[in-house]
Design a binder for these strands. Sequence first.
DNA 1: CGTGTCATGTAATCAGTTACATGATTCA
DNA 2: TGAATCATGTAACTGATTACATGACACG
Lengths: 186, 186
Amino acid sequence: MARENKSRYALLGILSFHPMSGYDLKKQIEQTTNHFWHEDFAQIYPILKQLEAEGLTTSTVEKQEGRPERHIYALTEKGWGALRNWIAKPVSSQVRRNELLLKLFFADHVPVAVSIEHVQQFREFQLVLQEAFQRLKDSITQQHPVSKQSTYWLLTVNYGACVSQALINWCDDTLAQLGQLDDTTT
Amino acid sequence: MARENKSRYALLGILSFHPMSGYDLKKQIEQTTNHFWHEDFAQIYPILKQLEAEGLTTSTVEKQEGRPERHIYALTEKGWGALRNWIAKPVSSQVRRNELLLKLFFADHVPVAVSIEHVQQFREFQLVLQEAFQRLKDSITQQHPVSKQSTYWLLTVNYGACVSQALINWCDDTLAQLGQLDDTTT
DNA sequence: CGTGTCATGTAATCAGTTACATGATTCA
DNA sequence: TGAATCATGTAACTGATTACATGACACG
């Protein structure tokens, strides 16, 4: 089974909203899917060329004064088909790798204070995320009319908010447990 | 800043419990850290060679009849140092990529039923995980004496259980919302 | 007689990150 | 004057997955 490159579908998906350049794609991705998906220029530009070569997109050149040209990409019918087709396919299970848990799993070899620090850091980070999710929710509901698109978008934000809330609870529980461990016991 | 290979620390960490072969490492990882970390033979064997070349492990050969030799790796003092050092370092933030959310984000382009199916599948999967976590918890508490090691281990399992419970809640909430969308509205 | 386990590995490929390169404009 | 933004890209490297290769034994 060939590995399907998912980055290409991320790009096709964003292009489905409206035609834009690689530079715009990066910005759009940062503003919308950043909490669960991101792409780098070093992948975006080559993939865009590839998509065009495969007939999934077409491109036009916009000339500007004193600025580099903008290459505007738009979906073709074939591109739309590929996107819809991918969306409908079952989600392939993804790799979970969690460095915090890996360190905790081996935490026996270091003072408890180290793990407490890691978990506290992690908790801080989740709080920052919570705020970011709240701001994103607000901006979606304010700037966008109630539509299917905004509903789906909010669902992805809820996912993040839900998980980070659960993780904060886990942190509190964990910190309480770690507080009861001390370095003298086995 | 050079990327630090985390796989090597996973291997060093497992070896910290007791010396073993690459084959054993794979099995151990599957039995203990599987829900948040896994490694493949194609990475394990080359990394073991590398670790030995760097003096973090030593290896001895166990001959067997009618079976290939077993190469048993053990941590050196330097290996212990590298492991402890890594554990104490701050956790580097990790990439989040979530294909389900990516599909959901673009779900506007397909019938609502598609998304409902995806979310239901995901919910089923979380239920399976919940059961697996429960079994793992039971086996840890039954087979291992109460120790710091088992406490840390249980913390990692709690993490998974906690997140998957939150995700089940998110699924329920999401399914309710998707049920109210229909394909005629914008 | 086929599947699974034990036990090691290599080769090829794909994905992702970092660093490098260019060059104008705007803003503090 | 220096940093940030606009806008494109390439090269090198590291990480991870898949497929391939070998060969004996045990179990049903």
